[in-house]
């Protein structure tokens, strides 16, 4: 589980952020002692830091600059100012991304996901599911003696379910993932895509690939 450290001095925001990120299955750490931040950060060694620019004792940008001297932990800066200059400054101090308050929770989660993915940098071309091999870029799913082609939407849905295999994924999450990939489809289209995906896997011999959990979402087995 990825560890995310929140450095934010507003208590309500901090608590809600914590809940949001926990729900999105991240391990969340909170820094509420602002006197020795740099050491604390190094000690807990998070995978990503959400850093508010207005924190007590030390400005967030200063902290970031100091942190960059000793560590490359990905940092997303959070601020309520909307000047471009702040953004440029933060990025030049080594922030990996920058988001302004009031952030949209969906967008925040997407940004976090994107930064983490970038820092992982392990984009594989071929994945395996049961006895099938899937070439992501070409959109081809192969069994021993057959192959089918997935559309872009079907591939996005499949990959999202695949990364969370065995746990429930809500329709809303799938929708967000699709929209995040510039596929602004509606509710019906999602249903259609899922059922097409199911029938394609059935063709390849996997009967119950995607299960429906009523009122909760889907689960890939």
């Amino acid at each position: 589980m990825k560890k995310i450290l929140i450095i934010e001095d507003d208590e309500s925001v901090r608590n809600e952020l914590k809940e949001l990120l926990s729900n999105a299955s991240y391990e969340v750490l909170v820094l509420d002692n602002y006197t020795n931040m740099l050491d604390d950060i190094i000690n807990v060694h998070p995978d990503l830091i959400l850093l508010d620019i207005n924190i007590p004792y030390m400005n967030g940008e200063v902290l970031l600059r100091n942190l960059r001297k000793v560590s490359n932990i990905p940092v997303i800066m959070v601020t309520s100012k909307i000047g471009e200059i702040d953004e440029v400054l933060s990025m030049s101090y080594g922030a990996d991304d920058y988001i302004t308050k009031p952030y949209n929770p969906t967008i925040l989660l997407l940004r976090i996901g994107a930064v983490l993915k970038r820092s992982e940098n392990n984009i594989t071309d071929v994945i395996f599911y049961h006895d099938l091999s899937i070439e992501i870029k070409k959109g081809i799913v192969r069994s021993k003696d057959e192959e089918v082609i997935l559309t872009k939407n079907e591939m996005i849905i499949f990959l999202y379910l695949y990364e969370r295999m065995g746990s429930i994924v809500s329709r809303d999450e799938l929708m967000t993932e699709l929209w995040n990939n510039d596929e602004y489809i509606n509710d019906n289209a999602l249903t259609v895509n899922i059922s097409r995906l199911r029938s394609k896997f059935r063709e390849l011999g996997i009967r119950n690939a995607i299960l429906t959990r009523k009122g909760q979402g889907y689960i890939l087995l």
Binding site: D10, S12, V13, E16, E19, L20, S80, T100, P105
Partner: peptide
């Protein structure tokens, strides 16, 4: 406008949760 963004952010996270 800047100050009110923090409570709005807290509320929108709350609503999402």
């Amino acid at each position: 406008a800047h100050e009110i963004k923090t409570p709005i952010a807290a509320l929108s996270l709350y609503a999402e949760n």
